[in-house]
Design a protein around this nucleic acid. Sequence first.
DNA 1: TCAGGTACCTACCCAGAGGTAAGAAACACT
DNA 2: AGTGTTTCTTACCTCTGGGTAGGTACCTGA
Lengths: 89, 89
Amino acid sequence: MTLIGSKWKVLLLQNLRDGRQRYGELKRRLPDISEKMLIHELKQLVEAGLVTKHAYPEIPPRVEYELTANGQQALPVVDSIIAFGRQYL
Amino acid sequence: MTLIGSKWKVLLLQNLRDGRQRYGELKRRLPDISEKMLIHELKQLVEAGLVTKHAYPEIPPRVEYELTANGQQALPVVDSIIAFGRQYL
DNA sequence: TCAGGTACCTACCCAGAGGTAAGAAACACT
DNA sequence: AGTGTTTCTTACCTCTGGGTAGGTACCTGA
């Protein structure tokens, strides 16, 4: 629960399933997340080893996030949560 | 996430899968939960329609909790969370 | 020179998860 | 009279998820 048990972590994993994506792209795909939470949750996912961060020393900066193998293993959880949510509503 | 996204709700659903159980029994099966949280989380599960409460007007009181049909549908989520947790550790 | 984009960080606020500790109602049994 | 059993309740504390709002660094392009 500590690793993936929050509203935004589930949605981030769900979005990252489509492959490596940069910060701004995630922000666009989750219009309602605040920048603070986006950074914060991404950082925790990286610390948990579910996501890797690729930072390119360019100007303007470019940072990409990608699921790790462990992150892939979390996708079934995300799926079942989303399936339950849809069916419950 | 609001419905089942907490440490103890997952474990309560997991324990209630074995059938209707009374308060004291759940308390024994989850030795680390505080009484406050046990009552609180059970109440929320009841409000969410995942669990039903059967109270018998006896002395000493007897109260039993049981999964509803919606509660049963949440079990796959619980399973995948627990499976992920085990494998991750 | 100045607006703009990109990926952050900071301070402040609120609600809820979770813990500890104590007590309450009601009867049974010694 | 007192102790125990069972299901809660209440008060107080801390930590974190989540939001709003604003600021920072660096370069690009008009």
